[in-house]
């Protein structure tokens, strides 16, 4: 027996999901971070974040079409993590590293938190 593994399939699907997001097609939730708004797909958010997984598996909350995050969350840090969810690329700017890490802790994105820790350690003189 044989099977054909399309090696680009996962990244091709993610690319298309990101295009859908940028065109606001089938996005089903608005995330409010302070006064900034981010449109996204619930399925992508819950596949990447423990916090969103908990929210959208809760039968009372899963149908919400807007979610307000803790006002302490930095919108720039959230924007970088949302971009990561849809692209696999984490932009680690030194000026924003603490905001990104604290937002990743809040969103329960453990592997990203570990990566931020390693980045901070490696840039510590």
């Amino acid at each position: 027996d044989s099977c054909i593994q399309f090696t680009r399939h996962a990244s091709d699907v993610l690319l298309n999901l990101n295009r859908l997001r940028s065109r606001d097609i089938l996005t089903d939730v608005t995330i409010l971070v302070n006064r900034q708004q981010f449109r996204a797909h619930k399925t992508v958010l819950m596949a990447c974040s423990g916090l969103f997984y908990s929210i959208f598996t809760d039968s009372l909350k899963c149908s919400l079409n807007a979610i307000s995050l803790d006002p302490k969350v930095d919108p720039d840090g959230f924007a970088i993590l949302l971009e990561f969810m849809y692209t696999s690329r984490l932009s680690l700017k030194e000026s924003l590293i603490m905001a990104i890490m604290n937002t990743a802790i809040y969103l329960q994105m453990d592997h990203v938190v570990d990566t931020c820790h390693r980045f901070i350690k490696s840039s510590d003189p």
Binding site: D1, S2, C3, F6, R8, L15, N16, R19, L20, R23
Partner: peptide
């Protein structure tokens, strides 16, 4: 897929959704 002979296909797997129509 253990024991299955896997052939790798490196090209695109699906159509590409355009950035904008």
């Amino acid at each position: 897929y253990e024991g299955v002979n896997t052939i790798k296909e490196m090209g695109r797997s699906i159509h590409e959704i355009p950035r904008q129509d």
